[in-house]
Design a protein around this nucleic acid. Structure first.
Lengths: 220, 220
DNA sequence: AGCCATTTTACGGTTTCCCGTAAAAAAAAT
DNA sequence: ATTTTTTTTACGGGAAACCGTAAAATGGCT
């Protein structure tokens, strides 16, 4: 049964709709906040008062503003919240549509549901909350707008190289940057090999194409 | 005075919040739709019935689904609506944060207000509607998250070149692609000059950096 | 330690890209 | 129609990227 819910969502309109959704479901024991840090504070407080939340509904991305926050995003909030209260159920409500990122939420953070901000999101929210109340997980239904998982797994090293390229560092100068950061393979040949490997894995012909793709995937 | 309002917004939750905002303002003569085409239909019908809308509140981007639509986005809706009813006032409500795109809405489409989906969007919506009711335009307040206007104006020709590069066409092969599409300057030197010009205008050192930037700006 | 497997680096040859200059073509002006 | 101006193209040298191969270094393993 779900009685006490915490909403963490910085967009005021989205927050209001979440509240209305809970009203419609007859769940009136909810609080809402517009910052990750406030959410964590409430979770800690509730734990101390032995009156924990049954469900956290959170967005993934929070826009930074003048109030500096410790928790950078929803994922960090989930991680921190679970350290306080491991049995807290979590429903993520976000516009994110990259399948591998959503999959990672289920796999690595064991979230209980994901609803994408999209055409029928209010109806889907209700369905998700009811499923979670029945101790089921709610996976996004097959959605043609979910971007298919990447055909290649980018390592941190890959991302560093690509990131340097996007910053305007030319290939031949990448080795010195790597050495400065004490990153293990730093030879120019290794950089060339890595780039070739990425291009071939994705069937690309140029680095330009590779960088464009990574930007689309929001990898860098 | 604003009495009759049309809401065009595909995200159900956002749509609900817009309705609630109008309720709070005491405006109860509103209709809402989830598709651009439906919005235009209603505007045409209202015109025929001599009961036109006072205000259109619309999103910019509508996700395509199985219902094929004639109007691709909010901008097209605004354009089409104004042809039916030139005095229709328009408030755009979108997550878009590129200043030059928002500016273009005010300049080219003479919209009456813009509210960005962000932290205090519900309060800002109310302020915007009240200002429009008082025959004023509502410009987004100075917002650090509005992306500053680009330092370089990309021509269609620029975009074609960049687009070819992101598709994996190598530079030396761009001339034949241009000739095939019968685009006027098609020499390799012209392509090189253009790229150099773009890089220098933006203080970039490589094409990789240039492409990354354009992807960030959603220009390609 | 010594040996093997793997990874990393160094080196060359080739292709592509970069950039300046000059020739050619096109457009504008007289 | 001819000159002037601007735009486009062609060409060539030099730098960077690409790619295969071989040498060197690294990391287990007995």
């Amino acid at each position: 049964m779900i009685k006490k819910v915490l909403i963490a969502e910085d967009h005021e309109t989205a927050n209001i709709s979440l509240q209305k959704t809970l009203d419609d479901l007859g769940i009136n024991g909810y609080h809402y906040v517009h910052y990750c840090d406030d959410a964590l504070t409430k979770i800690i407080k509730a734990r101390q008062d032995n009156d924990t939340y049954d469900l956290l509904i959170t967005d993934l991305y929070f826009e930074p503003d003048q109030n500096t926050q410790k928790l950078p995003d929803g994922t960090a909030l989930i991680k921190a919240a679970r350290e306080i209260q491991p049995d807290l159920r979590v429903l993520v409500f976000s516009a994110e549509n990259q399948a591998h990122l959503i999959k990672a939420l289920f796999d690595d953070h064991e979230i209980d549901g994901y609803v994408r901000k999209a055409r029928n999101d209010a109806k889907e929210l209700k369905a998700a909350i009811e499923k979670i109340a029945a101790n089921q997980r709610h996976f996004p239904r097959h959605d043609p707008h979910l971007i298919t998982p990447p055909d290649y797994e980018f390592t941190p090293f890959d991302k560093i190289i690509l990131s340097l390229l996007t910053q305007g560092v030319q290939q031949k100068d990448i080795p010195e940057h790597l050495k400065r950061q004490q990153i293990k393979p730093s030879g120019l040949s290794s950089v060339e090999k890595k780039l070739k490997e990425m291009r071939e894995a994705l069937n690309f012909t140029s680095n330009a194409q590779l960088i464009a793709h990574c930007k689309d995937m929001k990898l860098i």
